[in-house]
Amino acid sequence: MIPQIYITDYLSTAAAQPVEMIQALVARCPLLLNAEWTLGALPPMKALFAQCVEEDLNQAVSPVTAILKAAQVGPALDAAFCLLPVHLGMRRDTFSLQAVVPLSAHVYAALTERLSAHFADVFVIHPDAAHRYWWITPLKPVDALCQWPQDCLYQQAFQWQPQGPDAALVRQWTNEMQMLLHQLAGASAMEDWPQTLNSLWFASVGEMPRWRQSLPTLAGQGHVLDGLKASQLPGIQPLSLAALLAHTHPRGVVWVADDWQTLEWKALSSALETGQVSALTLVLPFAERSVAVHYKKQPRWQFWRKTPSLDILLQQLETKLTATQSSV
């Protein structure tokens, strides 16, 4: 098996701007234009879990939240939900999730204080050190299933509404939060208030998945890998991408990162150019799906093959994505 690199994009940052990501990526590693780009049906996290998890991937709640919670430093949390700042695209008859919105430390602190005060009688809110989301512990049990954002990106609202006996309560909390955001945005003197922030998203904290008996060797960096380590997933090795690329036989290794920007692209480009790595698979976010980039060094006698342009590549991917969306 050739080495694989997964960009989990677990907060959907790159998925919300797929064209910009691919443009920047190809600029850093031009040889990837010679690769085969195929559109996958699953987002990167689900594609990764397909290799590692025994359960059916159509389980009610994604294990992402359980894995992220496992990586928390400090006292153990009994949180039932993860709460994320998001941008919802509003239309006349429906709306859809467009992005998870990053917050400055100042805005995050202000929201934490306001949410804690407003919902003090119904739940406890636990801040996260990375300022990207909160953990929610209801004061009374809440029976509701809420999906992880990456699994719902660009889908119409009716496909991802909370489910279960207490789903209406979660929707009520969300409506109250939208009003709070509207008030804060209108009265705020904060210059760093994100204009795209218009809602907060509940994601249920699911159970830790059952891992397969036979697993690939996992390495990498970031919050997802930290959570996998904390969940005692077997087969994880502390290996940087540079070390993986320098390995004499890096076959069978799955290297995991949260964000495409954190990859050592210079080292990867050099390894491909020198032939040190002759083949690899790179799994990237692409809208609500993923793209698998299969690179294999071309034999010298194939020098006549013309490298496609970036514009042609983007057009092909857009055509494939549009075709799959229309068939759903």
Rank of each mutant, 00 (worst) to 15 (best):
194 P>E: 12
222 G>H: 09
323 A>P: 01
214 S>I: 02
295 Y>W: 15
13 T>C: 09
70 A>M: 04
64 V>R: 06
254 V>R: 08
313 L>K: 02
205 V>R: 08
313 L>W: 05
122 V>K: 04
134 W>Q: 03
311 D>Y: 04
9 D>A: 06
252 G>E: 10
260 W>T: 00
248 T>S: 15
80 A>Q: 14
212 R>W: 08
280 L>T: 01
106 H>E: 15
146 C>P: 05
94 T>R: 10
142 V>S: 08
157 A>R: 07
268 L>K: 03
246 A>E: 14
77 L>T: 13
253 V>C: 14
217 T>A: 13
161 Q>G: 05
323 A>F: 09
121 D>R: 08
239 L>R: 08
226 D>G: 04
111 L>S: 06
211 W>E: 11
64 V>N: 09
1 M>W: 01
226 D>T: 01
288 E>P: 01
319 T>Q: 15
43 P>F: 09
289 R>Y: 13
13 T>Y: 15
54 E>R: 11
93 D>W: 13
28 R>I: 00
150 Q>E: 15
231 S>F: 06
268 L>C: 04
1 M>S: 10
292 A>H: 14
302 Q>M: 14
242 A>Y: 02
265 W>V: 01
262 T>G: 06
256 V>Q: 09
42 L>C: 04
294 H>A: 10
143 D>L: 11
156 Q>W: 13
131 H>A: 09
315 Q>Y: 12
59 Q>A: 15
134 W>M: 03
211 W>P: 04
8 T>H: 06
307 T>K: 06
102 P>R: 05
18 P>N: 13
295 Y>E: 09
191 E>M: 11
166 D>P: 02
69 K>W: 03
172 Q>W: 10
260 W>N: 03
70 A>G: 05
264 E>R: 05
317 L>P: 06
162 P>N: 12
104 S>L: 06
167 A>D: 01
110 A>Q: 15
186 G>D: 14
137 T>E: 15
49 F>H: 14
278 S>D: 12
8 T>G: 02
246 A>D: 15
306 K>M: 11
48 L>T: 00
143 D>Q: 15
178 Q>F: 05
202 F>K: 05
37 W>V: 00
169 L>M: 11
113 E>T: 04
239 L>I: 02
44 P>W: 07
136 I>C: 09
142 V>L: 11
